[in-house]
Simulated assay, not measured.
Amino acid sequence: MKDPASAAETARRYRRFAEQEARGRSPLYEALGLGVAGDPEILDFLLTLPEAKRQPNLLLAAARHLFGTPAGWEEFRRDILDRPEDLRALMLVRATQTNEPARCATLLPVLARLPQPLALIEVGASAGLCLLPDRYGYDYGRAALPAPDGAPVFPCAVDAAVPLPAAVPQVVWRAGLDLNPLDITDPGERAWLETLVWPEQSDRLARLRAAMATAARERPRVVRGDLRRDLARLAAEAPREATLVIFHTAVLSYLPSLAEREGFAADVGGLCRYWIANEAPSVLPAIAARAGEAPTGRFLLSVNGAPLAWTDPHGAALDWIDGAS
């Protein structure tokens, strides 16, 4: 073992992924995550990568992209050990950039309540699929909003406290910011986004493909830039007659320190009327401390730093926090 302390931390990361994220969602990814956590050779391979590149979703997606979906742990392990340099090279140039459009279902009840019309900026926008909440359909069980022709309908289980929208928001301007924007018209980029969908989730894959087709028609603008240096310049372009909303989902965890995340949180409120964060509770602990005990595997949705709801990371569920307004 090259670095026992780092290997132990990486093993914990994969075990946590298997037990808290993949369990009940992907039997294959649960098995692979547990396998990695207990395998010194695979852990040594991961330690040849920068810490930020050791994340489970990146390893699993990159391996499937190169080798196809394995039948189980032994095939997965053999593929990695047979071609470690090919896999390492791919992981160094790729990022997860999941860009799960179904997360719009958890954002929509918030966006619909804000003063209309809206100007949207998504931080970490990838291919811009989440910049199109007004172009999709939604099924909340006790209420539904139809989709335009060809667009996906995203199912989302909600509790009784969630204020369901009667219509999609009116969006008059939208833009995204990303270190590496993905071109949705590029077949290679589309294939990478498809590989990021977990293997058993065929319905989710079908909705992603429909969302990518919608985005290819709409062509939401995504500019290359860093969220700490370039966001203010992009925010200044938004029309003043619209309510500017800056939002992000599963993005701030990529900032390397809590100080940087807190610095972003302190600055973003000065750039917009509404800041919507949808992140793992540990990402912004000062906000999470006011939300109560976090359900396992959920993200925390907050508005202007106030906790509002617990959300499924892939947009499949939304539960209002008691006392949230």
Rank of each mutant, 00 (worst) to 15 (best):
A61V: 05
H65Y: 13
R54F: 00
V93Y: 07
D79S: 10
L59M: 05
L59R: 00
E75V: 00
L59A: 01
N57A: 15
H65A: 12
A89N: 13
E85Q: 13
W73G: 05
L60E: 02
P50A: 09
P56T: 02
G72S: 08
A89C: 09
Q55H: 14
E74F: 01
L81M: 07
T96D: 10
L58G: 14
F76P: 04
Q97W: 09
D86Q: 12
A95S: 12
Q97D: 08
T69D: 06
G72K: 08
A52E: 15
A62P: 09
V93W: 08
P56M: 08
A95I: 05
A52K: 14
A63K: 00
W73C: 04
K53C: 13
E74H: 10
A63R: 02
L66H: 09
E75A: 08
R83I: 01
V93K: 12
V93M: 10
T69P: 00
T96F: 07
V93S: 13
E85N: 08
L90G: 12
D79V: 02
P70S: 10
G72I: 10
I80T: 07
K53Q: 15
T96N: 12
H65P: 03
K53H: 15
E74S: 13
P84E: 04
A61M: 10
H65Q: 05
R78M: 03
A89E: 15
Q55V: 14
F76S: 06
P84G: 06
T69Q: 06
D82H: 06
E74C: 00
G72T: 07
R88P: 15
R77M: 08
E75D: 07
Q55D: 11
K53G: 09
A89L: 04
F67Q: 01
E74K: 13
L87W: 13
D86I: 04
E85F: 12
E51P: 08
N57Y: 15
A62M: 07
P84L: 06
L60F: 15
H65C: 04
Q97G: 04
A63Y: 01
P50H: 10
A62F: 02
A95K: 08
E75G: 00
A71F: 08
R77S: 12
R64D: 04
H65S: 09
A63V: 01
F76W: 12
H65F: 12
D79L: 04
P56S: 14
H65G: 03
P70V: 05
L60G: 02
I80K: 03
N57D: 15
A52Y: 14
L92Y: 15
L87N: 08
G68W: 00
F67S: 01
T69R: 03
